[in-house]
Amino acid sequence: MKTLIYSAKDFEIPFLEEANKDVHTFKYITDRLTTNTAMMALGFEAISIFSADDASGIVLEKLKDFGVKYITLRSAGHDNINLKVAKRLDIKVANSPGYSPHAVAEQAITLLLALNRKVTLARKQTQNYNFTLDKLIGFDLKDKTVGVIGTGKIGSVIVQILNGFGCRIMAVDPFEKEELKKRFYVSYTHLDNLIEQCVVIILSVPLTSDTFHLIDKSKLDLMQKETLLINVARGAVVHTQDVLEYVDKNRISGYATDVYDKESGVFFYDRSKNKPHDATLDKMLTQDRILLTPHQAFATKEALANIAQTTVENLSSWQQGRHPKNTLLPANQVHVDDH
């Protein structure tokens, strides 16, 4: 199947080539899918897009006119595609779920440890030959109450890792998992109670109308002053300006995130010589108690290989007249286990 790969990155192309084995005809472009680049899909039966691509209704209309019949996402989350419009246009869509929940879960713990133990500040100090410890005091995770918001595939692995640290774990999810209760003594509760009780809060939920700005001033008001907030979900799950304000005022201790609500067109690109005009991003990069990584949680060899394999399997299923096992339904019929 002739397929245009939007937002192709150098690091993922070898994995896609290895998985494809010349079964399909791939063309790689670095351009993001937008209303302006949709015309590049002319002559392609299928396209593959990434989380930063725009597959909104107007873009899908253009893709349909250009002959695109299939869209395979190289991501689990699909908040960037209008599934209702895709269904109306009879454009088949599939994603890449479960590529490596361990990759994202381990990044969440990496962010937590780095923020708690002031690793980035320690590196900055020692690079300047400042070996004092006054600003580098953290706390033991053992016996601390940690909250996990979202216990799908990724959240479940986060719970497992936290259990190894000896944490008491609270969770919020509309679908409680009995296994987590039995094996790791997870206590499911309601959101406000979790926020009030936990000194660490980890976000691992898909972005939906229910989770948009889930953490805002009303929830930040409930947090302890010592709270560390960790986000490996989506940038818009938090109200970024509110979080920055509460960190600045020492109302919470810190925020570590692998995502940013205005990351489109910035993350995954070298903007060192063309810095974006974004005061919020500037603040996130200069505040010592905020740790931002560039949406790298999925970036492990294992995850990239799985994403590539699933991408090829989706295309092959369509080519053979079958529905891929990862077919996406209209948005109001989908339950997303993880982002």
Rank of each mutant, 00 (worst) to 15 (best):
T286C: 03
Q241L: 13
V312M: 02
E245M: 11
T227L: 05
Q287A: 11
I290D: 04
S218P: 01
K219F: 08
E226C: 08
K249E: 14
S317A: 15
H213P: 07
N274S: 11
Q319E: 15
T280E: 11
I230M: 01
D288L: 10
N250Q: 15
A256M: 01
N250T: 10
A236R: 02
R234E: 07
A308W: 04
D278L: 12
Q287R: 12
K225D: 08
V232E: 07
A305W: 07
Y269E: 15
V266G: 05
A299Q: 14
V238A: 10
A297R: 10
T227W: 03
D288Y: 03
S316F: 00
D288N: 14
E226R: 13
E226Q: 13
D248K: 14
L292P: 02
K301L: 13
S253Y: 09
T211W: 02
T211N: 07
L244V: 14
M223H: 05
T293W: 04
D221Y: 10
S218R: 15
L292Y: 05
G265Q: 07
S264M: 13
V237R: 00
L220N: 04
K273E: 12
T300W: 09
K273Y: 08
G265V: 08
A299F: 15
Y269I: 12
Q287S: 14
T227S: 11
E313F: 03
V237C: 03
S264Y: 12
I252G: 05
H239S: 13
T280P: 00
P294I: 03
D242K: 01
Y246F: 14
L228D: 02
D216P: 02
N250P: 03
N231R: 03
L228F: 02
K262C: 11
T257K: 11
D258H: 05
Q241C: 01
I230D: 04
L220Y: 08
I215D: 02
D258R: 01
G254A: 00
Q320G: 12
K301H: 15
W318R: 07
Q319K: 14
V259H: 00
L244F: 08
Q296T: 12
T311V: 04
L228K: 01
F212C: 01
E245G: 11
F267M: 11
T311E: 10
W318E: 02
T311C: 08
L220E: 06
G265L: 00
N314Q: 10
T240H: 09
W318I: 02
L281Y: 05
K219T: 06
E302H: 03
R251K: 15
W318H: 03
D242A: 15
K262E: 15
L281H: 00
I252S: 06
I252E: 03
V312Y: 08
R289T: 11
D216A: 14
Q241N: 12
E302R: 10
T311L: 11
L304M: 15
S272M: 02
Q319W: 07
A236S: 14
N306P: 00
L315T: 01
N306S: 06
R234M: 01
Y269G: 00
A297S: 14
K273N: 13
T286A: 14
A299I: 13
L222Q: 05
A279V: 12
I215E: 03
D258S: 00
I290E: 10
H295Y: 04
T211S: 07
G235M: 12
G254I: 00
M284L: 06
K249Y: 13
E263P: 07
R251Y: 09
